[in-house]
Structures are given as structure tokens and as C-alpha cells.
Design a protein around this nucleic acid. Structure first.
Lengths: 193, 193
DNA sequence: TTTGCTTTTTGATCTAGGTCAATGGATGGG
DNA sequence: CCCATCCATTGACCTAGATCAAAAAGCAAA
């Protein structure tokens, strides 16, 4: 499980045995089964989570009781309510497992320790944030400019593995369209071939 | 001009004379008049900008030639194409001044120097990023869950000063609705009083 | 297998908000 | 001060995608 994280880090900086020992002393492994909830709306987020296996998602529930998925986090992704679990304000999100999953938890203190002790970690964290930010901007633009079909196709192209693993109604929720519309888009696409 | 930035920093950490001298040696002031472009699509972003006076915006142009505003940046905001001008990949954004403005430019090297030399700067940068990220998530959720009217009213509540300073069609562009719809929403709201 | 979910598909209808077009202010450059 | 351009408003109409309702598949537990 830690090996997955190690491999992930090795992509951006060399991990010495010493660093790895530090990492292992800070992150806490946790096993989740499909449906388990990591964070509930209103709770204070204590942890960020690295997904070593399986998939989590974060979502909100609107005033009409509808779920809206903010993020999918399959293997090698990080997930937390704020990017970087900050201040101690209560979360507006839920986070749960949509597959049986194995994750590694890190709290704020551990995060700061790693930033201080491992420059490579700090840099990798910064890069990661920047990528996420760019992706979020991209998603905002898409929601402003693209049709349902375009957004659906973009998703297939950008995250093909996620698209295959996730039930269609969740994909619809992420894209901000109804399951019915997703179904119709797929039908139309398959007919065209 | 530097005084504005100093006051901004003082909100999150004490700025010694020495630090301030360093800051002044790194950031470069620039005056822009309304309409001046700081960054064009396809160019590589060299600078992040702190707005000391006036207002900038970032936007994209879609394949139908329509502008979509990503961000407004009035006084005391930072703006750049990626949050933190990273890698050297070309920008997908435009950034221009929508009022006569005075800004302070910082490049990647200067940014890293400040991170290294001023722990307060690094922390303030991290906090800033987290706030932005939360705001972006909020905006994504809003675009998924709220009606045009709700988003308009949210904007008025969240950014009253920006709403007053910015022409309506830009506000519409930011919210992802047409100027006509904004006009109708306002009419309806004023009738109700 | 059967029973009881949860998902997906399909059809019929409805509506928020877009598009098109025209008018009347603003406003700022010369 | 005047002209040109850009902005906001209003009306008529239209369409993408939502909503509602009901079959049909899947799938899982027992």
C-alpha cells in the first residue's frame, strides 16, 4: 500500500529509505468498503487522503436533496475537502468510497512536516495544486461554453478509465446533466457508428 | 504602490524593513490603461500580477468567438494564467485591464525566492491558493446546481463591489448567461420591490 | 432461481434561458 | 458638440435539456 505512494512520489522526486521511513511514520493506512463515508458535511476535515486502490468521490447535496459530484479520485489521486485541509472550518462536502478502497490518510501536521523535511514533497504538492487548479478552470470554462454532449465526450477522452468504472448516473452527476440525457447521448453516439 | 502590497502582506505576516526591501527588489511595477493586454492566448505566462489599483480580468475565447470571463481581479487580488505560473506551457487565457490599473509583476524565480526567504509569504501563498480552490469548487457547484437568477444574486452578495464596477455584459459572461437574461433578471428584481 | 433492488433506456411533455432583431441610451474620441 | 460605437432593454420565438412516468435490464443476496 505504501509502495503505491512511494511509486507515486518517485515520479517527481527520488525517495531515500530515510524519507520513506518518515512518510510511513506519518501517513495512516485505512481500508474502506464500497459505500463507507470518510467525511460528512458539517464535520471538520482532519485528513487528506491518498488513494492507493479503489476509488473515492467527493460530492455535495443541494437544497433539493440532489447529489452533485465534485471529484472522482481513483488510484494515485489525492482527495480532501479543501485542497490541502486548511483552517478548521466545517466541510461542505461528503467524501465516500464508490469501490472497495485502500487509502492513506495525512493530517495537517503531518503535511507540514513533510513540506518542511522533504523539499521534493513540497514541490510535488505545489505542482499538483497547480494542475488541479488548471483542471478546475477548465471545468468551469466547459460548464460555461460546452453542450452536454461535448462535456460528455470530453470526459470520455480525458478520463477514459474513470468513465468505464463509474456508473452512468454518477458521471451524469459530475457533468451536471441528468442520467436520461446521458443515456440519450450514448444512444445517439452508438447509432452514428 | 508597493505600500498596497505591503499592507496586503501585513494582514498575514509582519513585514520587516529587510523583507520589504527584498520584496521591492523582486516585484516590478507596471501601469496599464483600460484595454491593455497583459497576456495573450498562446503566449507563455511569465508573470503573476498583484493588482494594487484598478481591475484586471482573465478570459478565454471559445471556438464560436465568444469571450468567457474566468476571473475578475480588483485591488489586492493576484492574477495569473495558472495559479502560480508554473511550467512554461502556453497560456489558454487572455488577461487584460478593464480599468486603468497599477500592478506589480513577479516571475517564477522571484516567487521561489520569496517562498524560500519569507516563510510568511509561503504560508500566505498556500492559504491564498486554498481559498481560490474552495471558491472554484463553489463556482463549479453553482454552475451545476443553481439557476441563472440564483447565480446572479449570489454574485451580488459575494462580490458587491465588483458587481458595481463591472459592465453588465461582463458579469453575464462570468456567470455564463447572456446579457439579455441579466437584463431580464434585474428588471424582474426591481419590479418586485 | 426467485425476489427485490438499482440502473438504464425510452417516450411525451415542459420550461429556462438562448437567439435574433430592433430601439434607445450612454459615452468617449476627435 | 457631434458622431460612432458600444451597452442595456425589450419583445417574439426557439431549442437543449429537464422533468415525469413507465418499461426493461442488470445484479445481488438468499
Amino acid at each position: 500500500m505504501f509502495e503505491v505512494l512511494r511509486a507515486y512520489f518517485e515520479n517527481s522526486f527520488p525517495v531515500t529509505e530515510e524519507s520513506f521511513a518518515l512518510i510511513k511514520s506519518i501517513l495512516v493506512p485505512k481500508t474502506m468498503t464500497k459505500g463507507d463515508i470518510l467525511l460528512r458535511e458539517g464535520e471538520v476535515a482532519k485528513y487528506g487522503a491518498f488513494v492507493a486502490k479503489g476509488m473515492l468521490r467527493s460530492y455535495v447535496i443541494d437544497n433539493k436533496g440532489k447529489e452533485h459530484i465534485i471529484q472522482f479520485a481513483p488510484e494515485n489521486w489525492w482527495i480532501s475537502d479543501k485542497t490541502g485541509l486548511t483552517d478548521g472550518s466545517p466541510s461542505t462536502f461528503f467524501i465516500d468510497a464508490i469501490e472497495d478502497s485502500e487509502i492513506l490518510l495525512i493530517d495537517m501536521k503531518g503535511h507540514l512536516t513533510l513540506i518542511e523535511k522533504l523539499p521534493g514533497y513540497a514541490a510535488s504538492f505545489r505542482t499538483g495544486i497547480q494542475k488541479r487548479t488548471a483542471a478546475k478552470d477548465q471545468r468551469i470554462v466547459a460548464s460555461l461554453t460546452e453542450t452536454a454532449k461535448e462535456r460528455y465526450n470530453d470526459f470520455l477522452k480525458t478520463y477514459p478509465t474513470i468513465a468505464q468504472r463509474v456508473p452512468q448516473h454518477m458521471l451524469a452527476s459530475y457533468l451536471g446533466i441528468t442520467p436520461e440525457t446521458v443515456s440519450r447521448i450514448r444512444k445517439q453516439a452508438s447509432r452514428k457508428k
